[in-house]
């Protein structure tokens, strides 16, 4: 255990090793560790962002779904009211049609009555004259009794 040149030799090899380590070992290793740290940090950040995006997307989807449901409900309500309206309209039309047919029939009947009445009226003079001729057993001059016959016919 005596001090000798070994100390100097050890000092020199120590310095050489440190210099070598400083040049070729330490920088690449530390640099790569920083890079990985950065990558991992970025990855984590991205994961958080992705989670947030997913949340937003879920929310949006929920909103869309709600809107769609609401729209569907509105559509159904509209359709229902439209159907009711159509039914009402159909009912109204039908009753109108019925009324019209009824009125037409009534008019026909009235016309028929009138015609019968006119016919009756046009023939009442003849019938009356024939009746009177038969009653009077004589020929009655139509010309002379025209006024009286017309008056009779108007009274019908």
């Amino acid at each position: 255990m005596n001090i000798n040149l070994t100390m100097l030799g050890q000092l020199i090899s120590f310095s050489l090793f440190v210099l070598f380590c400083m040049k070729y070992v330490w920088p690449p290793l530390t640099q790569i560790m920083r890079e990985r740290q950065k990558t991992i940090a970025e990855g984590l950040e991205k994961a958080v962002a992705a989670e947030r995006q997913l949340e937003q997307a879920n929310e949006a989807a929920d909103n869309e779904l709600g809107e769609a449901k609401q729209q569907a409900a509105e559509l159904i309500a509209q359709a229902r009211s439209r159907a009711n309206q159509i039914i009402e309209e159909a009912k109204a039309q039908a009753s109108e049609e019925a009324n019209r047919i009824l009125e037409g029939a009534q008019a026909d009947i009235d016309q028929e009555i009138n015609r019968a009445r006119e016919e009756l009226r046009s023939r009442v003079g003849v019938l009356a004259v024939e009746g009177a001729e038969k009653i009077l057993q004589a020929e009655v001059n139509r010309g002379t009794h025209e006024a009286m016959l017309s008056k009779l016919a108007a009274e019908l």
């Binding site: 005596n2 001090i3 000798n4 040149l5 070994t6 090899s13 070598f20 070729y24």
Partner: peptide
Amino acid sequence: FWSINVDTMFWSFFLGCVFL
């Protein structure tokens, strides 16, 4: 003082090289 421990130098240098 003017001597050197060859075994110490050899092993320390060898192990330093192993490390590097």
